[in-house]
Simulated assay, not measured.
Amino acid sequence: MVTGITDAVQAVDAAAVMGLLPARPRLLALGEPTHGEDVLLDVRNDLFRALVEEDGRQTITIESDCMAGLLVDDYVTSGTGTLDEVMERGFSHGWGASAANRELVRWMRARNEGRPASEHVRFAGFDGPLEITEAASPRQALTALHRCLADQVGAYSLPCTAETLDRLLGADDRWTEPAAMMNPSRSVGRSADARELRVLADELVALLGTLAPDLAATGDGWDRARLYGRTAIGLLRYHYWMADDSPARLARLAGARDQMMAENLLALAERGDVFVHAHNGHLQRAKSSMRMGEQRVEWWSAGALVSTRLGPEYAFLATGLGTIRHHGVDVPPGDTLEGLLYALPEERFFVDPRRLAAAFGDAAPALRASPYFGYAPLDPGHLPGMDGIVFVRDVPRP
């Protein structure tokens, strides 16, 4: 089987990737099968730099808080703040501690220095303000949207005052209550205040839509106002489902998160061509799933939602890997996708998934078992939905 794909293996570079795709995608997404390994982010960084220089792609967006990401974008475009500050405050999920993420931000700032704004590379987070155990208060997004609209039309034209929002929001810690993730009764998401906030958020977003001709001319101001609106609506929806006690709760939470991701990606695509990086599970075209206790949860990923809207203007490159020995992931069995790729001598390479499928012929590859909960092997059933596969042979020990 190795002989069947050896001649299809290419270096992980912009020319190889773009040459394999049938059309130039608006959103080019690179997934990773596990988080927290800088070698995978180094591959991402190298490919992004090549896409900037050779393909003209100017925006990178990653699986991080969309609101916090504005701080990173301000730094790389205008030098606002310091590198230490944006690494501490501009990333969620602990990504700011990553040396590879730090190098990405440093390179983007250095490249933009002295260039006109039209040539700047841009940064964005496309995840909601969500962590594993909690969701943020909608305060930041709601008040920013309210302030933007008040500046445009005057506070008297808005459906509520800033004081009303503040009263309904209350203390932020009632929104970020960690126990609410496992105990719906601890969530504020279906309280009378939350219900009223959902109505007001909808009215504010509707008003924003009526001002599109005025605000569109402001460029980034318009983009940010829309981001505030999407985030406020998305967070209030997420909190609503955190308070649900039905069997649908976990699936709706996962779906709500990926819906927020998809809406942010589509908005970025309106601005120009984007390079996307996140977990394979958020970017794949196939339905996502995971087991939580005794329950199997299924939902459509952000990639599936975006692909439905953009068609060939969305491309998905999955990343597979051979070993993560410090997490107990050893050499993959030869009858799996990873096992076939691990038999090749290259450390990092790019391959056409169609050639990989043909190499197996009628013998369907096995799904690799993962001894580490944080690593998701490539699913052979997902091959038809992949536009390319990046393979990293061994993840070094930290």
Rank of each mutant, 00 (worst) to 15 (best):
E88S: 15
R89C: 06
F350Y: 15
L27M: 12
W95N: 00
T133V: 13
P384S: 08
E203G: 11
L40W: 12
R106Q: 13
D193W: 00
H327S: 08
R291K: 15
R111I: 06
L47A: 04
T59H: 03
A29D: 00
R109F: 11
A359G: 15
S118F: 00
H277L: 14
L265M: 13
Y375G: 03
G361Q: 14
G4Q: 14
E270Y: 10
D202T: 14
V390A: 02
S370N: 05
A15G: 07
M242K: 02
L20I: 05
G189V: 10
V17I: 01
S289Q: 02
G293A: 15
R397S: 07
G234E: 02
D193I: 00
A254W: 09
T176L: 04
A150R: 12
V329N: 12
T82P: 14
S301H: 04
R226K: 15
A304N: 01
M181Q: 15
L337W: 12
P353L: 07
K287N: 04
V306A: 02
V390W: 05
P116C: 09
Y228M: 07
G255W: 14
T34V: 06
A376C: 09
L145Y: 07
R237F: 03
A318S: 12
V199G: 04
R49C: 03
A262Y: 01
A117F: 12
R109M: 05
G170Y: 06
Y228I: 00
R24G: 14
M108A: 11
D220H: 01
T82L: 15
A135V: 08
A302R: 04
N280V: 10
P333V: 00
A254D: 14
R252P: 04
C148Q: 10
G381T: 02
A225H: 15
A171L: 10
R167A: 01
E131M: 13
L266F: 07
V2C: 02
R109L: 06
G234M: 02
V72W: 10
L47H: 04
G209H: 11
D335N: 15
T210K: 06
A248G: 03
M386R: 01
A369S: 12
C66Y: 04
R49K: 07
S92P: 09
F349H: 02
I324Y: 12
G31E: 06
G125R: 14
A150N: 02
P213F: 08
G255R: 13
G255L: 15
L169K: 01
G4W: 05
A363N: 02
G311A: 13
A15N: 03
D362S: 12
H35W: 14
N264F: 11
V105R: 00
R325L: 08
A232R: 01
A302N: 02
D13T: 04
G114E: 03
L367D: 05
P138G: 11
L158M: 05
A357V: 08
M261W: 08
F123L: 11
V297Q: 08
G81H: 08
N183W: 12
L367N: 06
V52G: 00
D42M: 06
L21E: 08
L28F: 11
Y342L: 09
F275N: 09
G281N: 10
G170L: 06
A16G: 06
T59L: 13
L340D: 09
D13I: 01
Y375R: 09
E113D: 08
L200P: 00
D166H: 07
H93Q: 11
V205C: 07
Q152I: 06
F275T: 09
T133D: 14
S187R: 02
